[in-house]
Amino acid sequence: MGKLVKLVIKDKIAEVTIDNPPVNALNAQVIQELDETVEVIKGEEVGAVIITGAGEKAFVAGADISQFPSLNSDTGKKMVQTGQRVFDKIAALPIPVIGAIDGFALGGGCELALVCDIRIASEKARLGLPEVNLAIIPGYGGTQRLARLIGEGKAKELIFTADAVMAQEALQIGLVERVVPAGETVNAAREMAQKILSKGPLAIRKAKQAIDEGLKGSLRDGLDIEADLVGELFATEDLKEGATAFLKKRKPNYKGL
């Protein structure tokens, strides 16, 4: 794909690898290549996405701090708005996005992890938002997505103190969904993606849509969205195939129709 962001699509799984040594920092080129990569994925027949970082040192260890002194109020705002736009595009993909986190996921790297639907961390992973150490705050969605994921109080603690958490604590507070041995995150993500791909593809898309859209409003709003989407699924061939396969005790053959 790009020089710093690699894309491999195999068996309907898109693997996106950020490869920007030594710590896979999110500079302007990485952000641009991520944007381009998402556009490619949107045009392919893909059922799941895995995002990871090259090597075992870092998933993504933050933004490129060397650019900060040259930024002013306007250029700094434009920089974070660009990052937010690209991260929003990743989050808006209608298919599951799995983060395979090995090593450091700090600052922008933690924010990229937050964009994923599911996060799998290695036992040596370390996640945090240390921006206040540099007299700045998270700008790629960290103040918003972290609070929504783990709760307001814990999010404020991590952001105000700039403390990073190890994988097991991240699991306990709901920052990641699974912890695996070092070096096994991508394999674990592939296994999960393959399991997801064995399910009804339209149902997976509608489930993600129901959760994401439902969380934006009240419980009643969410229930209405859920009912609408269930109704849409009852009109699909996949629903009939799934029910028939269950009753006949055979494996379903879903076609996404």
Rank of each mutant, 00 (worst) to 15 (best):
V46R: 15
A92C: 04
Q172S: 10
A28M: 13
T82Y: 09
E33R: 13
L215K: 15
G83L: 13
A210H: 03
T52K: 15
K10N: 14
A188H: 06
V180H: 08
L229F: 02
I204K: 08
I120Q: 10
N20I: 01
F68N: 11
E44P: 07
L215M: 11
L26R: 01
S122D: 10
D221P: 06
G83F: 13
L129E: 05
I211S: 14
G200V: 09
D224F: 11
G103R: 04
D212T: 11
K156Q: 03
A92S: 15
G107F: 11
R250S: 13
Q209P: 00
K42A: 15
L134T: 15
R85P: 01
V40P: 00
F160N: 04
G83S: 11
L219K: 14
V176F: 00
P201W: 07
L71H: 07
S218H: 00
T236S: 10
L202Y: 09
V23S: 14
V30M: 06
K12Q: 11
E45A: 04
M79E: 10
V49A: 10
G214A: 02
G174K: 00
P22T: 15
P181G: 05
L129D: 05
L26C: 09
R148W: 01
V49R: 06
I13R: 00
I225R: 09
G62Q: 10
K89P: 06
K208R: 09
A125T: 03
K12W: 03
D102T: 10
P201G: 01
V40K: 14
F59W: 06
T161M: 06
K124A: 09
D163S: 11
I118E: 07
G151C: 03
A235Y: 03
K156F: 00
K216E: 06
K89D: 13
G128F: 01
P22F: 01
E111W: 14
V49K: 07
S122N: 06
A125E: 05
E184Q: 06
G83P: 12
A170H: 01
A170L: 04
D74E: 15
Q84V: 02
A121D: 09
I95R: 06
S73W: 12
G214V: 02
V60W: 13
Q144Y: 13
R190S: 02
I211C: 12
A25E: 15
N24L: 12
L129S: 02
K57R: 10
I50G: 02
G139T: 04
K6W: 09
M166L: 07
A63I: 06
L134S: 14
N27S: 09
